[in-house]
Each structure stands twice: as structure tokens, then as C-alpha cells.
């Protein structure tokens, strides 16, 4: 099976990185005897036969947490395309240093790419798996785009009305690292309400994904109510790309557009509202 091959390749790469001392620890996934899969810090001498690649977890967050506590540690990470892009954005915000990461890349297969509707289902360095084409067609997104203003309002108010305010979307987001979260400010979101005040909570969070969201889908995966958050954030990602030519996580050198002046990131297109 193709997947077994990928896991084998990855296991070898992880073992090699640890054995050669390129990395002291590697953030990855491990399966336990009951079949449950968890983030794990691989260390030299571990039996990598329990290493697995799915379901995917926000591993960049684990990397960040361990790195914060042990900044001098040579830390590796098993990274899919989205994990790498998250690391790129984290480094731009000073959370981690890109050149210190021992990146062990894994390419997603076409099923995975399809499931995530991933545009770039591979990292820049690949140690396991083969690059497959990115996916551009998104049925639900096209459907939403085709709706009238009123239909869109109905669509989102239904989903936002289901929200149980678990903050899972925020908690699982690799790029949500603010110490003080706007969602917790009484001025903007009335505390204790269910569903959270429509649509402040969700618009606020959506706006805060601008220039950050790398489309990993962890928010939607963590949503108990199945709110199609990735669709909304994708629409904004497309806007940011159109207006500023910026794609989060793609180019480590590109500056975050909302934090620069117009001389660095001029508005490339789209009406400015003026």
C-alpha cells in the first residue's frame, strides 16, 4: 500500500535525523495500543514502528510549545504542507525561528489533498510520499459564491446559530497565539451568550485570520457543530491574495500585508471602498 510506503519512508527519515544527531527530538504522531493517535516527541532509540501520519494534528503548535520552553534544543518536526506554512507564519511573528527547524516533510496523497481541498498539499522539502497536484475545485465554496447576498446571510446565520462557543476554532488554530484574545473582550463579544452574539464572534475571528490563515482546516475539524469555517476563511484568503498578492505561509520573505504600509504592499486590485 502506498500509505505503508509513506509511513516507512517517514519512519526512516525520523530515525535518521535522530540517529545522526540532526535533531534531539522530532515532533510527530504515534499510535497507541487502542488505536488512538497522539502528538508525540520522538527521541533517539524509540521504536518508530508506532509512527503514523494520520489523522493529522496541529503539530506546529506542539513544536512551538516545546520550542518556547527549550529554545536551544534541536527540534525536528514531521510536517505536511500546511504544517510548514504554519511554521512560516509563526516565524514571521517571532514565535519560532525558521532556520532552526529540522523539517521532515511529508507529501499528502491525492485523497488527503481532496479532503482538505488543499491548494499546495506538500511542503518545500519532502522526505516521504510523492507530490500530488493541488486541488482547486471546492463544491461548497462555489455554491456559497453563487448565492445571493440574502442567501449567504441565511446560510451563515444557520451555522453561526449552532455555535456552542467552545473556542475550539481558536484553540486548535496553529496561528492563534495572542495572549489577550479579542474574542474574550466584553466590549466586542458579550460573555456567556449562546449562541455567541451573531455574528460578532465569528466575524471577529474571521477577520483575525487575515494574513495568517494557511488553510490547514484544524478550526473546522475542532468544531463540534460542523460550521464550515474553512470556506469563510478561504474566501478571505482569496481576497488577500487578490488585493495584496499575499499567500500566508508560502513565501518566508513576504511581509504580512496588514502590518505594512502601502509602499510595501500596495493594494493590487479590488475596489478600495473609496
Amino acid at each position: 500500500m502506498a500509505d505503508d510506503k509513506r509511513v516507512d519512508e517517514l519512519g526512516k527519515a525520523v530515525k535518521e535525523a535522530l540517529d545522526k544527531g540532526e535533531a534531539d527530538r522530532v515532533v510527530g504522531l504515534k499510535v497507541d495500543s487502542d488505536g488512538s493517535v497522539r502528538p508525540y516527541l520522538w527521541v533517539k532509540g524509540d521504536d518508530v514502528s508506532a509512527l503514523v501520519i494520520s489523522p493529522k494534528y496541529p503539530l506546529s503548535t506542539v513544536y512551538r510549545l516545546v520550542h518556547e520552553k527549550h529554545p536551544d534544543m534541536k527540534l525536528g518536526i514531521v510536517a505536511r504542507g500546511c504544517d510548514e506554512r504554519a511554521l512560516v507564519e509563526l516565524s514571521k511573528r517571532g514565535n519560532i525561528k525558521l532556520d532552526e527547524i529540522v523539517l521532515i516533510g511529508i507529501a499528502c496523497n491525492s485523497d488527503e489533498a481532496q479532503e482538505c481541498v488543499c491548494h499546495v498539499p506538500y511542503p518545500t522539502k519532502i522526505s516521504a510520499g510523492d507530490k500530488v497536484e493541488g486541488v482547486d475545485t471546492d463544491e461548497l465554496l462555489e455554491k456559497i459564491k453563487g448565492m445571493s447576498l440574502e442567501e449567504r446571510g441565511e446560510f451563515w446565520s444557520y451555522y453561526f446559530g449552532k455555535c456552542m462557543k467552545c473556542y475550539g476554532c481558536r484553540n486548535s488554530c496553529p496561528l492563534c497565539t495572542c495572549k489577550d484574545c479579542k474574542l474574550e473582550q466584553e466590549l466586542f463579544v458579550t460573555p456567556g451568550e449562546l449562541p455567541p452574539e451573531y455574528p460578532m464572534f465569528h466575524l471577529l475571528r474571521a477577520f483575525h485570520t487575515v494574513g495568517r490563515c494557511i488553510g490547514c482546516g484544524e478550526c473546522e475539524a475542532a468544531c463540534p457543530m460542523g460550521i464550515p469555517l474553512t470556506k469563510l476563511y478561504k474566501l478571505l484568503r482569496d481576497d488577500v491574495k487578490e488585493m495584496f498578492g499575499y499567500e500566508a505561509g508560502m513565501d518566508p520573505e513576504a511581509e504580512i500585508p496588514l502590518l505594512t504600509d502601502l509602499t510595501v504592499n500596495p493594494i493590487e486590485s479590488g475596489e478600495g471602498g473609496a
Binding site: R38, C166, P224
Partner: peptide, 22 residues
């Protein structure tokens, strides 16, 4: 103890939690 991470392979939580769980 630094936090909670949902378990994606669990049949009930399926990688999701409520605010109390988190």
C-alpha cells in the same frame, strides 16, 4: 500540565470538545 488537546480518533469527541472540556 499545560493544556488539553482533543483526540481525533475517539468515537465520541472525534477531535472536538466543549468549552468545559477545553
Amino acid at each position: 500540565l499545560i493544556g488539553v488537546t482533543p483526540c481525533k480518533t475517539h468515537p465520541i469527541s472525534q477531535g472536538k470538545l466543549c468549552i468545559k472540556g477545553w
